[in-house]
């Protein structure tokens, strides 16, 4: 009878399985995080390495960081602070303008998707995710071809010759940023209680007043989060920028790539580390804003 009540063998086996499961649950994130962070860790580590070679770590130094700010012209290392700062300025310029345009357009799309009803809404909904999922290189090449064709037409019709430059990079960045902004703002709008807009209308606010006094303040965290995300993506983008840039429009990632073509200098490691910190910081704020939005309503 006792055996029928409690099966000791099965109970012990269950305990062992449970212990193994717990161990795996603990190991799993460690392995995953190792894959995620090991390469980056190496990069950060060697940005502080005294030796130029990545063969071994010979000691701690901030030399490469100071090199970024002080021109180094030598046989073994050549780094132009002026060119780098110029590239950085270009990045900020492209990022700011592309972000501003993408934020306005993305927010407008999100609003029409959440509140409007029009034919093809579901199709547009699906298409919105396209820039997020298609390979960047595909988008880059398609944009490059599109600009080429467009410029040829302009030449044909008006006789004006147009060349790629900041305008093409900015337009290209806007195209992929719109999706990210729209997705973030839409999530925020989905969180928002639509009766709040009815309440505003009930209290005498016309649609314009309702938008600016109720809807917009409530989605603002989402809009800012979307803008920060867009700005970060814009700062970090290499592939699309590379394919749509013209003369004198080198952005920071393109500049870094240029350095790599010569030789892997430790300054690259240092710049990359700084860029990573900046991006992480911006994305962190963006995520915090998105999280705050969700928990408040």
């Amino acid at each position: 009878m006792a055996q029928a009540l409690i099966n000791e063998g099965a109970l012990g086996r269950n305990r062992r399985v449970k212990r193994l499961g717990r161990l795996c649950l603990w190991l799993n994130p460690l392995v995953a995080y190792f894959f995620l962070w090991a390469p980056i860790l190496v990069l950060v580590l060697f940005s502080f390495n005294q030796s130029k070679s990545v063969a071994s770590f010979t000691g701690f130094t901030l030399k490469w960081y100071s090199n970024i700010l002080n021109n180094v012209v030598g046989a073994e290392s050549a780094f132009s602070t002026e060119l780098m700062l110029n590239a950085f300025r270009n990045s900020l310029f492209v990022g700011a303008i592309a972000t501003a345009i993408a934020t306005v357009l993305g927010t407008m799309i999100a609003l029409s998707m959440a509140r409007g009803s029009f034919p093809g809404k579901r199709l547009l909904d699906g298409l919105l995710f396209l820039p997020v999922v298609i390979p960047e290189i595909t988008q880059a090449i398609s944009l490059a071809i599109f600009f080429k064709v467009a410029f040829d037409w302009i030449h044909l019709l008006s006789g004006e010759r147009v060349f790629p430059g900041f305008h093409t990079i900015i337009m290209a960045h806007v195209t992929f940023n719109i999706s990210y902004v729209a997705i973030v703002v839409r999530a925020r709008l989905a969180d928002m209680d639509p009766t709040l807009e009815e309440a505003a209308s009930d209290l005498g606010a016309n649609p314009w007043q309702t938008f600016w006094r109720v809807t917009f303040p409530l989605i603002l965290p989402g809009v800012i989060a979307g803008a920060l995300l867009a700005f970060t993506l814009s700062l970090d983008d290499f592939v699309i920028t590379f394919f749509t840039s013209g003369v004198g429009t080198t952005t920071l990632p393109v500049f870094v790539y240029g350095l790599l073509k010569l030789t892997v200098t430790p300054e690259v490691n240092a710049i990359s580390t700084i860029m990573m910190l900046l991006s992480t910081f911006l994305i962190g704020i963006s995520l915090a804003l998105q999280g705050r939005g969700a928990s408040r309503s």
Partner: peptide, 20 residues
């Protein structure tokens, strides 16, 4: 005549107070 021009006001089921 839209809601914002009607001489009526509503107390909503879940109050719909503006959280901001």
């Amino acid at each position: 005549i839209p809601a914002y021009h009607r001489p009526v006001n509503t107390v909503f089921q879940d109050y719909a107070l503006f959280p901001h």
